[in-house]
Design a binder for these strands. Structure first.
Lengths: 211, 211
DNA sequence: GATTTATGAATGAAGG
DNA sequence: CCTTCATTCATAAATC
């Protein structure tokens, strides 16, 4: 039942749109499925809101006592896949950092100058460890990869080698610019974009000020 | 407006399926949009889990139990949901594709150029769904893993440590020690808020599974 | 059907 | 900038 949300992903038919000569695969979902999704998302939104509120209240009232409970959360489930915590040897942007970076990136002001990077780094430091090199690399990678960011049409190959006479259904990476503009049409995406699993690394240290 | 998440609903095309005689309207979304949605949901799921865990820890510890937030744990899907709510489908090579790929790989022609990948993809499409990205990834992984396989079975002498000595044959590897200056300091919970909790309206307490 | 393994994919960093 | 590599994550497949 937990996978109900994305159920449509599996049962949804795959439509072959043969417009423009080049085929384009798209997923199809019914209104029912969409409504289901909408509800599920709403649930999450509400829960998050409530939890955040509560947590705020609790930590505030607890702040008086000056209790430190940071390390207490460490284990619960930041290891969603049962991995070791200490294995990080390379920088990983915190959710907040990611948000900020994405935001700046979306402003499309091309390559950030060295000066700008310095500023950014300075700002981002407030949200976690980061270096100018990290920022620089991030922008490099982000730009480079935004080009082939086209969604990979991963379709299940239920049966082996069906001779589908398709030409090249998944090559919609015609122009990077097109994709770019397409991405812009999904506005708030970046604001919510935290890449789940890594988040735990930051969250568990909820104590605001280690004295 | 709380319906931002469903933005794709507006931009997605609407397909008219005239099957069954009676027309049936369905929404259409691209893979990219779907991936976006998936991530958004994943974000919520993770945040919820985190918050719940933290909250549990706090309330358990201080035991003052003044606030009754137990109702928040009541959600049926929270406990079992997690990251599993949104699952990504991934490409799996068909036997024939795999065979071809292995064959090409064995020819030792190192890194396949972009052009070569395109050709291969084109060829492999005859034997099942596949994209250039898939091919690219496959070669990357194949090479990386064949390299790693080599370095492992080298030790057969008087050996005592068999746990952390599987270093890659590189010497420029970073320090194995995790002297990382303590993950991150204090990412306040507020930082995790997303500017759109207002999208939940019709939902309050879960237990919504339309089962 | 719960765990473990194999492997496709994501990404930070280095090289050119 | 672009490409490549190393590492990690997530999940399909395999195993128990």
């Amino acid at each position: 039942e937990k996978a109900r949300v994305m159920e449509w992903e599996r049962q949804g038919q795959v439509e072959h749109q043969s417009q423009n000569g080049g085929g384009l695969y798209v997923k199809v979902m019914t209104d029912e499925q969409m409504e289901l999704l909408r509800r599920q998302i709403s649930v999450y939104a509400t829960i998050c809101e409530q939890l955040v509120e509560m947590h705020k209240a609790i930590t505030t009232q607890q702040d008086l006592a000056g209790m430190r409970l940071g390390s207490l959360y460490c284990d619960p489930f930041m290891t969603s896949a049962g991995h070791k915590i200490t294995s990080r040897q390379r920088w990983t942007p915190t959710p907040v950092q990611l948000q900020i970076l994405e935001q700046i990136f979306d402003q499309g002001n091309g390559t950030p100058s060295k000066q700008k990077i310095k500023e950014m780094t300075n700002e981002l430091t407030q949200h976690g460890p980061i270096s100018e090199t990290n920022v620089y690399n991030w922008f490099q990678n982000r730009r480079a990869r935004s080009k082939r960011k086209q969604s990979v049409p991963v379709q299940n190959n239920a049966e082996s080698e069906v001779e589908t006479d398709v030409e090249s259904p998944k090559e919609k990476k015609t122009k990077p610019e097109d994709i770019q503009s397409f991405e812009n049409s999904a506005p708030r995406a970046e604001n919510m974009y935290f890449q789940g699993p890594e988040m735990g690394t930051e969250m568990h240290c909820l104590d605001t000020q280690p004295n």
